[in-house]
Design a protein around this nucleic acid. Structure first.
Length: 548
RNA sequence: UGACCGAUGGUGUAACGGUAGCACAGAAGUUUUUGGUGCUUUUAGUUGAGGUUCGAAUCCUUGUCGGUCAACCA
């Protein structure tokens, strides 16, 4: 059954289970709560859950863990489904924990009948007080020994809306002196008169996570229920409930959440960034959300590669953002169409050119079948301001008076003269071109000191460029003193609106990824329109030079 | 100072009693009509102390450090 060697401890477990004949095939599930957008941490969980099922010939369910109606919404359901699909995974079924509310109620009644659950009248504060502490045993609720009949009647009355929120709960009768706080008679049901995004106002009692998750797993016959480390203490409750109920014994396994430095990876914190307008939305390109990364131009492939390289383990970890950048560049280098865009234009006049010359330039040197595009070389062009230097430096790759340089895909030009404005600032540069130096058919023999990107002033189109920096100034905002928002990098967005692009970029769509030569990888923003063409910088080119 | 989980280069991850390897990051070189890409080389690691063993990252004991748990959240 197994294809390759297990590459992590989860796969080792599955390997062993399959070999032992414990299961014929496996079923996993990805169980998001629809109360926020998916982020890189979820991507790791998605890749793991769908990945192992694929590898071992099993299936994966998408299950919305929608047991808390006050925070959940269909907006999130829609975005989650879109994100999972975009990442490239297909679920066998879409389920909702709310699909099982009736069954869960029956399970609860069974527990009551077995004497394993009771209705408790204690308030939240009272329950907290009698719960004890990690080093001190708790005390029994005075309602712990109600009769089965009384519990049954009370629980039914809870369902019927006879009590107010907080007035009564259903609790499992386990062990108030357990060293595991979660085993001290955990709540199973609470009363909430809230409108549920799917069941509407049908219910006023809702199961807690502990009484929904494992039961849902069991109903779906999930073989390997993979969750994050913080659920380790829940496993004891998970197993206890399944055993008492006598239902399909799904098993829970835990792995470490994936984090990335210089950002935060919690829905609660990301929600704050959105609500307090530190970013423009869940899909702001600076956000580590799947939708944010997608909008920025990061590909699903790159995210999957990143998750694979980040690996699966049982210890808390923080991955370096540079690993993600590497995965993005590796992918984009292969597929991005090369284009030229000048961010800060400097006019260059080719004084000996009296015609327009049509050029064909390759779309991607890494892709033989990438084809070419047409560009016009004209006697007035723009280069990058910083690509002209007045003071000669050692090892320069720039334009300089008296020196020759190549214009990418076009000709070698000799820089002759700087024309100045009244205030002595540079107005334009005058050059002459070598007619026999055309790219690909150069017979000039002229040595150049580098190659520059350029655009024709006649044909160039204005574009807006949005460049992004890390969202936080510190590696791990959650670990710092005080509020994580104190460490927000207020310069994380830089908008360039002086940029001029080669005309082919008018046709850019969201199916294209671009490399603007010598600038980085860029992707059309969803706010782009024919009158304002906007590109997001996905990631810069690797730069070994500016550091030296 | 309870229970549970964990500890391998800067970061992440392998090794399943038998040569500590890989990737990212860093450094050096090379190629290059992108200071990109490619290619070559290279720096750097087993949490401390004891034990078991011919042999320990791995097994045992113990210390240290980190994380989690006392939401009617998931």
């Amino acid at each position: 059954m197994e294809t390759d060697k297990a590459t992590n401890f989860i796969e080792e477990i599955i390997d062993a289970d399959l070999k032992a004949g414990k299961y014929k095939s496996i079923i996993t599930r990805f169980p998001p709560e629809p109360n926020g957008y998916l982020h890189m941490g979820h991507a790791a969980s998605i890749c793991l859950n769908f990945g192992v099922a694929q590898k071992y010939g099993g299936t994966t369910n998408l299950r919305f863990d929608d047991t808390n109606p006050v925070t959940e919404d269909t907006e999130y359901v829609d975005s989650i489904m879109a994100d999972v699909k975009w990442l490239g995974f297909n679920w066998a079924n879409v389920f909702y924990a709310s699909d099982y509310f009736e069954q869960l109620y029956v399970f609860a009644v069974q527990l009551i009948q077995q004497g394993d659950a009771y209705v408790c009248d204690l308030t939240a504060d009272e329950i907290a007080a009698q719960k004890g502490t990690p080093t001190e045993a708790g005390t029994h609720s005075p309602y712990r020994d109600r009769s089965v009949a009384e519990n049954l009647a009370l629980f039914e009355a809870m369902r019927d809306g006879k009590y107010k929120e907080g007035e009564k709960t259903l609790r499992a009768k386990i062990d108030m002196s357990s060293s595991n706080m979660l085993m001290r008679d955990p709540l199973l049901y609470r009363i909430k008169f809230a409108h549920h995004h799917r069941t509407g106002d049908k219910w006023c009692i809702y199961p807690m996570y502990d009484f929904a998750h494992g039961q849902s797993d069991s109903i779906e016959k999930i073989t390997h229920s993979i969750c994050t480390l913080e659920f380790i203490p829940h496993r004891e409750v998970y197993d206890w409930l399944i055993e008492k109920l006598g239902i399909y014994p799904s098993k829970q396994y835990e792995f470490a959440r994936v984090n990335v430095n210089y950002t935060v990876m919690s829905k609660r914190k990301l929600l704050q960034l959105v609500n307090e307008n530190h970013v423009t939305g869940w899909d702001d390109p600076r956000m580590p959300t799947i939708s944010g990364m997608r909008r920025r131009g990061i590909t699903a492939n790159a995210i999957r590669t990143f998750c694979e390289k980040a690996g699966i383990a049982k210890r808390e970890k923080v991955n370096e953002f540079s690993l993600l950048e590497f995965c993005v560049r590796e992918e984009l280098n292969k597929i991005a169409l090369r284009r030229m865009v000048v961010f800060q234009p400097l006019k260059v006049v080719i004084t000996n050119l009296d015609k327009e010359i049509e050029l064909n330039i390759e779309n991607n040197p890494e892709d033989e079948n990438g084809g070419t595009r047409q560009l016009m070389f004209t006697n007035e062009i723009y280069i990058e301001q910083e690509d002209f230097v007045e003071v000669a430096q050692k090892k320069i790759f720039k334009m300089e008076v008296g020196q020759a340089i190549r214009l990418k895909g076009a000709f070698i030009v000799q820089c002759n003269e700087v024309i100045r404005n009244a205030d002595h600032s540079i107005a334009e540069i005058h050059c002459t071109y070598y007619a026999n130096s055309q790219s690909g058919q150069d017979t000039s023999g002229v040595k150049v000191q580098g190659t520059l990107h350029w655009v024709s002033s006649k044909y160039a189109i204005p574009v807006e460029i949005r460049e992004y920096d890390r969202l936080f100034k510190v590696e791990n905002p959650a670990d710092e003193e005080g509020d994580f928002k104190d460490y927000i990098n207020e310069n994380s967005l830089n908008i360039v609106n002086t940029a001029l692009a080669e005309p082919s970029l008018k046709e850019a769509t969201l199916t294209h990824h671009f490399q603007f030569l010598r600038k980085g990888y860029f992707y059309l923003d969803k706010e782009s329109n024919p009158s304002t063409i906007i590109f997001n910088k996905t990631v810069g080119l690797k730069d070994n030079w500016s550091k030296k």
